[in-house]
């Protein structure tokens, strides 16, 4: 273990401990817990989008697949009365399966054409929810999607309590991040980066590029589907607009501002920007302008995102030391 990874592991441990103690720290302030839950959703969405990025592309259909998960779970709840515990897995399965089917033609396109084709997929998903009013409730969406209850011998938790849902969101988001961490750290993850670096080269050393792309895309979309299910049962109301291209774009902003190179980036970006967004809530339009300025400045002056700040600072300090010697 190098010095850097040790520090990173330490920071991660502190962050996780902080997240688990947050309800106590904020003395069960419901509003702060709400922000915490929002952060968890945003992290889950940004990291799963980042998993696709490790292969070198960005999917604008990502929020659409989150929507598929949300609608699956919501319809199973309102139609059959199934709880989130079952629906979550089905949401992942449906989103992943849809992603698998669509990705086969989708992966034929590259670069800007992929970006655009994925956008088309996202838009079609949203419009289908909007148009088939009888099934999906049209533009007005689905109401009354209740949070689940956990009834075990000696344990009875109602997740309509904010604290309980906070821990649910935290655990699920943590698992999603962990799964992605394991994928990226494995041999498969290295293959992904090699495809990211050069698709042609990867093909020539015998990597089945299409297979990896399809699997990674489907996995990421399944994880987005789980996020969608959690989102639906927390907000108890969903409509097609929640899952439009802007949702994907905000995730992309989280990744870019946080950093593109490691998993720390999207987690950092999603956390910080969600907090800043909440702080700027009273300011109206300035809030949106602020986001625009932050994105442009990051791309032009901090191309690696916020995660590179410590390294940059170290380099700066090193330079300064050398000079003073």
């Amino acid at each position: 273990m190098t010095e850097n990874t040790k520090v990173a592991a330490g920071v991660w441990l502190i962050a996780i401990a902080f997240a688990f103690l947050l309800p106590v720290i904020c003395s069960y302030d419901k509003y702060i817990l709400h922000v915490g839950i929002t952060i968890a959703f945003n992290i889950a969405l940004a990291t799963s989008m980042w998993l696709i990025w490790t292969l070198g592309f960005i999917s604008f259909a990502h929020a659409g697949f989150m929507g598929i998960g949300a609608y699956t779970s919501a319809l199973l709840f309102t139609g059959l009365g199934w709880s989130l515990w079952v629906n979550m897995w089905l949401a992942a399965a449906v989103a992943g399966l849809m992603a698998f089917v669509i990705s086969i033609p989708l992966m034929r396109t590259r670069a800007v054409y992929f970006f655009m084709a994925s956008w088309a997929v996202g838009e079609v998903i949203k419009r289908v929810f909007a148009y088939y009013r009888g099934i999906f409730g049209g533009w007005d969406g689905i109401f009354n999607i209740q949070p689940p209850k956990l009834v075990l011998p000696g344990l009875n938790i109602d997740f309509s309590s904010r604290v309980a849902y906070y821990y649910l969101a935290l655990v699920c988001c943590g698992l999603i991040v962990y799964v992605i961490h394991r994928i990226v750290r494995s041999r498969t993850g290295m293959i992904y980066w090699s495809i990211h670096e050069s698709e042609i080269l990867a093909q020539h050393v015998g990597i089945n590029v299409l297979k990896h792309k399809v699997i990674a895309f489907s996995t990421a979309c399944a994880l987005a589907g789980v996020t969608g299910a959690l989102y639906a049962h927390y907000h108890t109301y969903i409509n097609p607009k929640t899952f439009d291209i802007w949702q994907s774009e905000f995730s992309l902003v989280h990744i870019i501002v946080g950093g593109l190179n490691t998993l720390n980036g999207p987690v950092l970006g999603a956390t910080l920007l969600t907090v800043v967004d909440e702080l700027l809530r009273p300011t109206g339009w300035y809030r949106v302008i602020f986001f625009g300025v932050v994105v442009i400045l990051t791309v032009l002056f901090l191309p690696g995102g916020l995660e590179t700040v410590p390294a940059r600072l170290r380099a700066l300090v090193g330079k300064w030391r050398k000079r003073s010697d």
Binding site: F115, V288, V295, I296
Partner: peptide, 10 residues
């Protein structure tokens, strides 16, 4: 893409 998205916001 990111820079032009920032421009849209602004």
């Amino acid at each position: 893409l990111a820079v032009s998205m920032g421009l849209i916001f602004i």
